[in-house]
Design a protein around this nucleic acid. Structure first.
Length: 485
DNA sequence: AATATTTTTAC
DNA sequence: TAAAAATAT
């Protein structure tokens, strides 16, 4: 029997459209699929919501592999050591994986690749996670892009789609299977308390991912450009956790949107809007190849920014009791379901960084812990975009007005009613800013401000001016380059 | 992927 | 006088 090939699953928990798996199957020998719960020191540990998802996604992948006559070997520890050990143990001829670009991962893989070569196990890295080869998208001058629009103009043309790769129906098995941990022993699902009761709308795993894509292209894509901004409506793809864990490839999403436009299910413009969102995922991954974006301001001028120390404000924000209904609705949706609508992510992030002047890193960490789709590049990149320190022409004065945003994107107040039930009986006219309502209106709706629901913890106009003043500090700081706009 | 304020235009 | 457009932050 020919020596086995190890396929190391990481952020590609799927059988279809998986270049590393395809290469292993094509080679013809036995395939040993493995997953390692990586405990390498210095690597950022996944948050609790991510681990909840991982648990289900691994169970799904494992079942799919078993249906193909194979298995998923589970191990935990320092990944490079474990993979090397498994390669030795099984006398593997090759070890294949799809690239991950998060901080520390590329370095870890490079060291491992050298060690594997010395053992006679050939390492091979594939691009399974991105539409383009990120290293190949360069400006005319050969540098890296730092603004989305020109990046996407170039990257969009560089998307290589060799067509879909079907999931293998059967995998050849090795003469002997290496030992595997039991998934349940990893205790990824929360207990005492189990706070995941509100996560039940999700269906982690490859089948759930493809269903989500199908529902999206059949329903929401046709009005994506406006529907995506309405938090009370199912107007987004809800593909983010599936994409983060690689249960579906971005190329499959790309193809589905184009096919939908081709078949008249959506206009080219609407499809293009969705493709651009996939583009943001590429863009954030591209800029995240530099210094750790969760720690370092992309715009180093922000290193001097006078953030406030405000533990009480931070806590009110986390718990959804700031007194701004749209902000509180978003933060409670996040806590309850492990997800927050994108429009509301921008509003809540703007509130933390502009109204409370709290360091964006604290917000990024909270999202990292509570989002099922927490993705290093997207999360840190988008937080910095909102804070103004990110890769963007990013005018520092882009301060969201929570009432205006709320009126604009949740006009009837349905999203607020869903997540802030104590305000459910308020009319649309006052639900976005209950403190402006006349006393009888509040009383008639059973709302006692300061008791049932808090008054605003900061005044919008004052907070806005305070933020502008704070930004003026770094704009005029020594060494700062003056804004051209 | 914005907002507040001022100025101009349309009725 | 309201709406739209321009402009500053």
């Amino acid at each position: 029997m020919s020596p086995p090939i190890i396929v190391w699953f990481r952020r590609d928990l799927r059988l279809a459209d998986n270049p590393a798996l395809e290469a292993a199957v094509r080679a013809g020998g036995p395939v040993i699929p493995i997953y390692v719960l990586d405990e390498t020191p210095g690597l950022r540990a996944p948050g609790a919501a991510s681990l909840w998802w991982l648990d289900k996604s691994l169970a799904s992948l494992s079942a799919d592999l078993e249906a193909a006559g194979s298995r998923l070997v589970l191990r935990r520890g320092v990944a490079a050591d474990i993979v090397l050990q498994l390669a030795r143990e099984t006398d593997a001829a090759e070890v294949l994986w799809n690239a991950v670009f998060d901080p520390g991962h590329g370095e870890r893989d490079k060291v491992l690749a050298e060690a594997l070569k010395r053992e006679g196990a050939e390492p091979h890295r594939f691009n399974g996670g991105h539409l383009v080869n990120l290293d190949d998208v360069k400006t005319k001058a050969g540098g890296d892009f730092s603004v989305f629009t020109p990046f996407w103009r170039t990257a969009r043309q560089a998307v290589i789609d060799g067509g879909s790769i079907p999931a293998p129906s059967a995998l050849a098995t090795p003469a002997a299977w290496p030992a595997s941990d039991a998934l349940s022993d990893w205790r990824l699902h929360p207990t005492a308390p189990d706070w995941s009761g509100g996560f039940s709308d999700w269906r982690p795993g490859e089948a759930g991912a493809h269903d989500a894509l199908e529902v999206f292209t059949a329903q929401a894509l046709r009005s994506y450009s406006t529907g995506r901004d309405r938090p009370a409506v199912n107007g987004t793809s809800r593909l983010s956790p599936h994409l983060h864990f690689g249960e579906i490839s971005p190329k499959a999403c790309w193809r589905a949107a184009q096919a939908a436009a081709h078949h008249g299910q959506a206009s080219d413009g609407e499809a293009e809007k969705f493709l651009a969102e996939l583009g943001w995922r590429e863009f954030n991954a591209a800029i995240a190849r530099g210094p750790d974006l969760a720690k370092t301001n992309f715009d180093r001028k922000f290193d001097a920014f006078p953030w406030r120390d405000d533990p009480q404000g931070l806590e009110a924000w986390k718990r959804g009791v700031t007194g701004y209904p749209i902000v509180d609705a978003g933060m409670r949706q996040l806590w309850t379901t492990g997800w927050m609508h994108n429009r509301v992510r921008m509003i809540t992030a703007s509130f933390l960084t502009k109204h409370l002047l709290i360091d964006w890193r604290l917000g990024e960490q909270w999202f990292w812990d509570t989002l099922v789709d927490a993705d290093h590049a997207s999360n840190a990149g988008n937080w910095q975009w909102v804070a103004g320190s990110g890769a963007d022409a990013s005018p520092y004065f882009r301060i969201f007005n929570p009432m205006l945003q709320s009126e604009k994107f949740d006009p009837p107040g349905d999203y607020i009613r869903r997540w802030v039930p104590e305000l459910a009986r308020l009319q649309a006219k006052v639900i976005h800013a209950p403190w402006t309502a006349a006393a009888p209106v509040l009383a008639g709706s059973g709302v006692r401000l300061g008791h049932d629901y808090p008054r605003p913890i900061v005044d919008h106009a004052l907070a806005r001016q305070r933020a502008l003043d704070a930004y003026a500090v770094i704009r005029t700081a020594p060494g700062a380059t003056p804004d051209e706009d």
